[in-house]
Structures are given as C-alpha cells and as structure tokens.
Simulated scan of single mutants.
Amino acid sequence: MAFLYRFLFFIIGLFIMTFGVCLTIKANLGAGAWDALNVALTRWVGLTIGTWVMIAGGVLIIVNAILLRKRPELLSVITFVVIGSMIDFWMSNVFGNLQGGHFIVKLGALILGLAIIGFGASIYLQAKFPLNPIDNFMMAIKKRLSVNLMVAKTIGEVVALIPALLLKGPIGVGTIIITFAVGPFIQLFFPYFEKLMQKLEA
C-alpha cells in the first residue's frame, strides 16, 4: 500500500508540476534555463519541447555517470519520460493557442506557474523515486567539485543558460525570478505533504 501512495504522489506531483512549467513558458517573460534551452531547440531543430526534455535527460544521465564515476541511473529514465510526455500534453491540449497579454497578466501567470511548480514538486518529491537528471546533475556537480548546493545549482543553470542564450531562447526577467523563487515555493509546500505522506504510510 505504501508503494501505491508513493506512486500516486509521483504521478500527481509531476502532472501538477509540468502544468506550472508550461504556464511559466507561456507567460513569455523568460523561462527557466533548462526550459528556455528546450524551447530554443524546438524552434531551431524541430521536435516538441517534451521530446527535448527527454533527449536532454538522456544526455545528462550519461554526464552524471561520468561525473560520479558510477553506472548510469537508468531508473531516472522513467522520470524524464513522464515529465516530457506531460509537458507535451499540457502544451498541446491546454496552452497551444494561449497568447500573452499585458505585463501584469504575464507576471501573474509567471508567479502562479511558480507556485504550481512548487506545489507539484513538493508532492512528487515525497515519492522518493529517482530524481530527474537535472536534479541529479546538480548533485553530481556538488560532489565532484566539492561545492555547496547553491553553487552547484548555479553552475547547473549556467550550463543550460549559455546555449539557451546563444540559440536565442526565451531568457528574460522571468528566468531570474524562476531561478531564485522555485526553491522557496517548494519549501513552503513541502512540510505539508511530508506530514501527509507520513500519515498515509503509518
């Protein structure tokens, strides 16, 4: 029964989180670094944003294995395939024809998207399933370079930000807001779902 709860938290959390990711992209004030890179690759090469999420995930699994000098975390494939599929679902079925409005509307959409990302991530993390490769990349940098989590996260974001800028991805003020605000939103919701999971597993 505990596994079922964890699985439901995993799927529901990612379903909600990816909705928030798509909302931040559609707010058109600047996406998160990795999302901006995926959007840029979609514009230049083709394929869907979700497909690029999966391709980037596959590359990062190999990079993480090299950095950590261990076998690739193949179970992470499940996570990035689910994330990529859900992003394509939301972009095609909900956000396909959505157009940006005034700055206040865009800012509201961005902040709402961030809150939804934090809400969904707080649920998905309770499952304690394999992390998505971007999160693992941050942890690999932390361990390999012996830096703290904040520095590792910054390095990880810059790795995506540079090619996103070169490819003229959607980088803007929203990118900065997302970089610094996602963590606090996750921290806001995390304790509630942690307690809920503990009650369900008791």
Results as ranks from 00 to 15, higher is better:
Ala2Ile: 04
Phe3Ala: 13
Leu4Val: 13
Tyr5Leu: 04
Tyr5Lys: 10
Tyr5Gly: 10
Phe7Val: 11
Leu8Glu: 12
Phe9Arg: 08
Phe10Asn: 07
Leu14Trp: 05
Leu14Lys: 05
Ile16Gln: 06
Met17Phe: 04
Met17Asn: 03
Met17Ile: 01
Phe19Glu: 02
Thr24Ile: 02
Lys26Pro: 00
Asn28Leu: 01
Ala31Trp: 13
Trp34Cys: 00
Ala36Tyr: 09
Leu37Asp: 03
Leu37Ala: 11
Leu37Met: 15
Asn38Phe: 01
Val39Phe: 08
Ala40Asp: 04
Arg43Val: 00
Arg43Asp: 13
Ile49Gln: 14
Ile49Trp: 01
Ile49Asn: 15
Gly50Ser: 08
Gly50Lys: 01
Trp52Cys: 04
Leu60Glu: 06
Val63Phe: 08
Asn64His: 03
Ala65His: 04
Ala65Pro: 00
Ile66Cys: 07
Leu68Thr: 12
Arg69Asn: 13
Glu73Cys: 04
Glu73Met: 06
Val77Ala: 12
Thr79Ser: 14
Phe80Lys: 01
Val82Pro: 01
Ile87Asp: 04
Asp88Pro: 02
Phe89Glu: 09
Trp90Leu: 05
Asn93Met: 08
Asn93Val: 02
Asn97Phe: 05
Asn97Gly: 09
Leu98Lys: 07
Leu98Asn: 07
Phe103Trp: 15
Ile104Tyr: 10
Lys106Cys: 10
Ala109Ser: 14
Gly113Phe: 00
Leu114Thr: 05
Ile117Tyr: 05
Ala121Gln: 13
Leu125Glu: 07
Gln126Leu: 03
Phe129Tyr: 14
Pro130Asn: 14
Asn132Glu: 08
Pro133Val: 00
Pro133Asn: 03
Ile134His: 11
Asp135Asn: 04
Phe137Lys: 08
Met139Leu: 15
Lys142Met: 14
Lys143Ala: 15
Ser146Tyr: 10
Val147Asn: 05
Val151Met: 14
Lys153Asn: 10
Thr154Ala: 15
Glu157Val: 08
Glu157Ala: 13
Glu157Ile: 04
Val158Cys: 12
Val159Leu: 06
Pro163Val: 03
Leu165Tyr: 12
Leu167Thr: 00
Lys168Ala: 11
Lys168Met: 09
Gly169Pro: 01
Pro170Ile: 08
Ile176Asp: 02
Ile178Val: 11
Gly183Tyr: 07
Pro184Val: 10
Gln187Gly: 11
Leu188Lys: 11
Phe189Lys: 11
Phe190Gln: 14
Pro191Lys: 03
Tyr192Pro: 00
Phe193Lys: 07
Met197Leu: 13
Gln198His: 11
Ala202Leu: 02
